[in-house]
Design a protein around this nucleic acid. Structure first.
Lengths: 194, 194
DNA sequence: AGTGAATGAATGAATTATTCACTCATATTC
DNA sequence: GAATATGAGTGAATAATTCATTCATTCACT
């Protein structure tokens, strides 16, 4: 195999993964059929099997990269610049952004009854609530500066995150007629209006 | 058939419907297996078929009563007592209450790709956004009294409802670790703190 | 002409809705 | 109160269906 065709192979692999991520996020682990992935990737039904051994392997690959992505994102929360208000706005923005398929996939996997062994193993070092501690710190700071409402920071961050995740999931299915609020609306949950 | 056994039959039918509603709300239309319904209702696998022709018939029955229930609830919004703040709190309470399976089922049906014909027909006269108009009116009133924040009432009610529905769905699956906020937290989206 | 990429119809292993032969408790009849 | 009838209830067996995976074939390119 030439260098060139190897690169083409990689690109195609990425194309399939990208399509699969979108479909998984939208339809869940069981709801996703190989034919849907093929359609989304604009390839034939059989071709995925020249690039991945099985559906499970695709999922495993996706979970692998999604965990990395998510953990990076969590780490970022602690180092965000700006006022506490700015920072919780950024968090909302991050979670609500349209193409946030990775985070949604992680949700799907967490909710799913039985996932492939390999996936279960990977999930062990993923803690979606890792963000909680960092967020609570931001909230404490915001309370000191008087920007934020009173209340237990841990509890408030839990509620804030949960609300955002609810909206995120809602987006995945795209229901006719609903229109999601943006970050500026959501930060009202914590911020005192001036 | 005696009066007595007829009553027993009705009760059993209700028992099955109640179990099915819970399971459907929790696992979705495809995810729900007849065996799960039987287990939830604490009856044998076969018995449901002495009370309903098919899984589809159970679903159809459930959708029928859920539409009625939902429409009643929507109508109630217009006639709620109390200040605007009280009323949007009641709306949140209504949507977020734990055993709100009917509303969740309606969501499931709306999202589902293909539902039984009969169900599709029933869904035609269900408008989840019917509540929107009534809510917008409440918001206008709250803006006049100065309780609520400024902004387009229609848009604000859409955002408020969407956020609540997101939380509602989240609850259906019961994810380890998440803790949902209550109505008093949610009304902050619209109400100015004193 | 030879090579690997790509197709999409065919396969067959699960999965699961539905049926049915049977049991058992209770009601009815004499 | 014994004999019989009824129909609710069971759960293993059956029948459909679904869908991941394979593979014979075509295509594109050198």
């Amino acid at each position: 195999m030439t260098i060139d065709s190897e690169q083409i192979r990689d690109e195609r692999r990425e194309q399939i993964k990208k399509a699969a991520l979108k479909v998984f996020a939208q339809h869940g682990l069981i709801g996703t059929k190989m034919s849907m992935i093929a359609k989304e990737a604009k390839i034939s039904d059989g071709l995925s099997y020249r690039y991945f051994k099985s559906k499970d392997e695709i999922l495993t690959e996706l979970v692998k990269s999604s965990i990395d992505g998510a953990n990076e994102a969590f780490a970022l929360v602690g180092t965000m610049p700006g006022t506490p208000t700015d920072r919780i706005r950024m968090i909302a923005q991050e979670i609500l952004q349209e193409d946030n398929h990775a985070f949604i996939l992680m949700q799907q996997v967490m909710v799913a009854r039985d996932v492939p062994d390999e996936v279960a193993r990977l999930m062990e070092d993923y803690d979606p609530l890792a963000m909680l501690g960092a967020l609570a710190t931001i909230i404490e700071e915001g309370q000191r500066t008087g920007e934020f409402i009173d209340g237990d920071p841990r509890e408030l961050s839990m509620w804030y995150l949960t609300t955002l995740v609810g909206l995120m999931n809602l987006h995945a299915v795209e229901i006719e007629g609903y229109r999601r609020p943006g970050p500026d609306f959501m930060i009202r949950l914590l911020v005192k209006p001036i």
